[in-house]
Design a binder for these strands. Structure first.
Lengths: 338, 338
DNA sequence: ATGCTGTGCGTGATCAGTCACATATTCTAT
DNA sequence: ATAGAATATGTGACTGATCACGCACAGCAT
């Protein structure tokens, strides 16, 4: 006998509506093979009739599994590329999303552990933290970083080769005859931005050129990117230092930067050539269409999730590291100098 | 005595590490006032020492509360505006995110119920479904729609006055002397797009004007928006029907549409005036800076969450309906005809 | 000394499932 | 006919917390 008044039905309610034991209901729930087809149908009918919903809390309690992953961003950096994240990628897992600041990351990870989260997908491009320290905060939960490529081998990550990307961009401009190449890049707190910055300098020096003027700013949301692109370009223009080409850290910054150039009476590519990063949806539709470094963010996300689930399934998986190579998409924002 | 080998510590482990009963540990966990300060300190010390983490599953099981809300989108429509969503807005609640298709919405809501989710935040601009049907699918869980403004009073929602918005846009163009006004809008599956379309026709007719050429397309992600903006504008141009101004459903579509105009040798605003929607971060930085209808998405999100939590706290709350009014931001993509 | 109130802490039952094991039934092989 | 295996179903213990209740002891008034 089960109390059927008011509350949600339990497996025991279903059991005696179907005239079987609660264990049989549990078997049906878990697709256990050894249930007679008739009984199974009986139970399913009873579940439907009562509007039964399995209680995930009780299930978690005994199985110690939550079928949940957690997506964590630090400092509100929800990047445009993550828009591509598709629920289909995480199978029958659910995803908890939370943003935190650096100071509360440990606490956030504690809560994730309390929640029995089975995997952590971290996007924190400014978080510079030793691998072992980060792993210690994770309470043994599998972790994937989807922000940048580290040097260490302890953590699983999927990143892009920023050095190569920048080299391609700079080399493209040099090949076109540019010698004074400026840069508007992300805040150097972000490791990727640092690498780009250094790669820009290195590539120029290797070609016997001096780095041109440069500016930095936060570029992790469209809003901040557009503005700091504008402001950064203004700074460079106001510096009075000469340049005929400029590298801009993403296609939103480029919108802002191009606006600044226009305000100063300069045209792209006639007066200034631009190479941008990301190949965002709008990059090919701006005036002029942007020459840009394409990153396959979709592939990055897919791989990162794939690695994460691999770690969840087999706890002894070695950490994966994967560096993706970018492509240069040449459009009309760059031109050859005579 | 508790087994301390291997597994995560429980309150019982903490209890006998601190020399108290498990109930006392529970009191400390729940900030119960009647615990002696010494005892509390003792317990906290034991928790820290053992690295204790409360098991959320067990807590959910007894309290029947999950402190979780669920953010559901339908058809992968993760809108750019939702980027603004800030964890801070949902207090100590966690958020589960899931996308589904129309056919699996019921199933997704079932899972939400199984998970003891306490509130549902729905973004599904194309989901036309009777209120009572939707509510029935929600198993009594508080729901807020953040997509459009409905006519019914059963559901809580926060939307914008699209009719007014479009009226403002059209009127602005009429005041500037335009008589042939085209429109590139979202797919008419989306209710907001339908309203805009009808309001465009109505406003023109009230001013004794005939609707100009028009086109529609999916506009819910930046990627689709840019492309359908381009394609829609091409269609209108190829139709050969005359127009001196065009309404474009968002600032991403406008990037695509402007590109199409350029390809046809037309300039904005010299040849064609544009009024766009959304006032996205880049709207003021394009060439020309866009005259656009501003929606305060941040306020919309804040209100929607506020209403949701109100419903969670007090189950007898009446459904709220809130229509937000847009603003017209005049920039340089519109000009007066002589 | 007795009763009363309030504080601090402990015991047993409960939440809704799952797991290991036990039992009943049917089927096949000897 | 009967042992043995295979299939189908049931019972009791358990997961890790919370809740309702109960008890011990302190302080204070009678």
């Amino acid at each position: 006998m089960a109390k059927s008044h008011g509350k949600r039905p339990t497996i025991r309610d279903v059991a005696d509506a179907a005239g079987v034991s609660y264990q049989t209901v549990s078997r049906v729930l878990n697709d256990h093979p050894r249930v007679a087809p008739n009984t199974r149908a009986q139970v399913l009918r009873a579940m439907k009739k009562l509007g039964y919903q399995r209680n995930v809390a009780a299930q978690m309690l005994t199985t110690h599994r939550s079928r949940t992953i957690q997506l964590i961003t630090v400092d509100g950096e929800f990047p445009f590329e993550l828009l591509l994240f598709n629920s289909a990628q995480w199978g029958d897992y659910s995803a908890v999303y939370s943003d935190c600041i650096r100071a509360t990351l440990a606490e956030t990870l504690d809560k994730a552990a309390a929640r029995l989260v089975e995997g952590i997908f971290l996007y924190a491009p400014k978080l510079r933290i030793p691998d072992d320290e980060l792993l210690a905060m994770c309470h043994g939960i599998p972790l994937v970083r989807r922000d940048f490529a580290l040097e260490s081998k302890q953590i699983t990550w999927v990143g892009f080769d920023q050095i190569r990307a920048t080299q391609m961009a700079v080399q493209h401009l040099i090949d076109l005859g540019h010698r004074d190449i400026a840069v508007v890049t992300g805040t150097l707190q972000a490791l990727n931005a640092t690498w780009r910055y250094e790669s820009w300098q290195k590539t120029l020096r290797e070609n016997g050129l001096q780095p041109g003027p440069n500016a930095h700013g936060d570029y992790t949301t469209p809003k901040s990117a557009v503005r700091t692109g504008y402001e950064g370009m203004c700074l460079i223009l106001d510096s009075g230092k000469p340049f005929t080409a400029v590298l801009i850290a993403n296609d939103y910054m480029t919108i802002g930067a191009t606006h600044a150039l226009r305000e100063h009476g300069l045209r792209v590519p006639d007066d200034v050539s631009i190479v941008s990063y990301d190949n965002s949806p709008h990059a090919g539709y701006l005036d002029p269409p942007l020459t840009t470094i394409e990153f396959n963010f979709d592939l990055q996300n897919r791989l990162a999730f794939q690695f994460l689930f691999e770690m969840i399934e087999k706890s002894d998986t070695e950490p994966h590291q994967h560096i993706l190579l970018p492509d240069l998409i040449v459009r009309e924002s760059t031109r050859a100098l005579e």
